[in-house]
């Protein structure tokens, strides 16, 4: 062992698992938000276009760290009125929930653009063919557009996911015991900041590599039957 972890190995491992959970939960929320954002932006309705555009512009213009802090500390009053409304004793956003919402929100804003590009890249003829066959609009989206969008959007989404995974470190600031926070706790006890932050960096690198490999397989699977055109 190159690094002496002073008994904090299991703690770092638990933190890594928390980081992965946070990244996956944010990904799920972000994909939904991104899809909704892209649908709004490409819809023929002006107010929806405006809504989608405002969402992606506003969220992308403000630091992720600020979103994390704002959603964690800023929603206290909101949650209390919501609890009163529902007649509940209390409602709270855990650090995990706040982190997921903040990171999902940011992922969704960028994913909106990726999905929008993918929707626009699908030939008009496909939609028209669906209409000619008498399919309903939701059915056309679900069965014709979405499966094709997936393939086009995948590389872009993959990049966003790598960014998301690194952004999970920001949630340490509100006390969620993910990898970064666990490393800070270890530094407090061991007084060896370089050792533990370096180990954390290597773990993040490892996660990035795993994500890259996973993405490679997903992309291969998604583009079965397609010839990659030369750039």
């Amino acid at each position: 062992m190159i690094f002496d972890l002073h008994g904090f190995g299991p703690a770092l491992l638990a933190g890594t698992l928390m980081t992965i959970q946070l990244a996956l939960a944010s990904l799920a929320l972000g994909l939904v938000l991104g899809l909704l954002g892209a649908l709004a932006k490409t819809s023929p309705l002006k107010p929806l276009q405006w809504l989608g555009g405002t969402y992606s512009t506003l969220v992308r213009g403000v630091p992720e760290l600020l979103w994390v802090l704002l959603i964690y500390f800023g929603t206290v009053g909101l949650m209390r009125s919501l609890a009163d409304l529902l007649g509940m004793e209390s409602l709270e956003l855990s650090a995990f929930a706040a982190g997921t919402i903040a990171l999902g929100l940011c992922f969704g804003a960028y994913a909106t653009e990726v999905f929008r590009g993918a929707i626009l890249a699908i030939p008009k003829g496909h939609r028209e063919a669906g209409l000619a066959l008498g399919l309903s609009a939701p059915r056309i989206f679900w069965r014709l557009i979405l499966p094709q969008m997936w393939r086009i959007a995948l590389p872009g989404l993959g990049n966003l996911f790598m960014i998301l995974m690194k952004d999970t470190a920001l949630v340490s600031v509100i006390g969620l015991e993910e990898l970064m926070r666990r490393s800070q706790i270890a530094v407090t006890a061991s007084k060896e900041p370089f050792t533990f932050y370096m180990v954390a960096a290597l773990i993040y690198l490892g996660l990035t590599v795993v994500a890259m490999i996973g993405l490679h397989f997903l992309e291969r699977r998604a583009s079965r039957g397609f010839v990659r055109s030369a750039a």
Binding site: E89, S90, E92, G104
Partner: peptide, 21 residues
Amino acid sequence: TYKKFLLAAAATLAIGSQAVA
């Protein structure tokens, strides 16, 4: 896959609440 994503997203949004017993 999509159903799983939606379920996970719904689970994420579910907010812990507890009574002060």
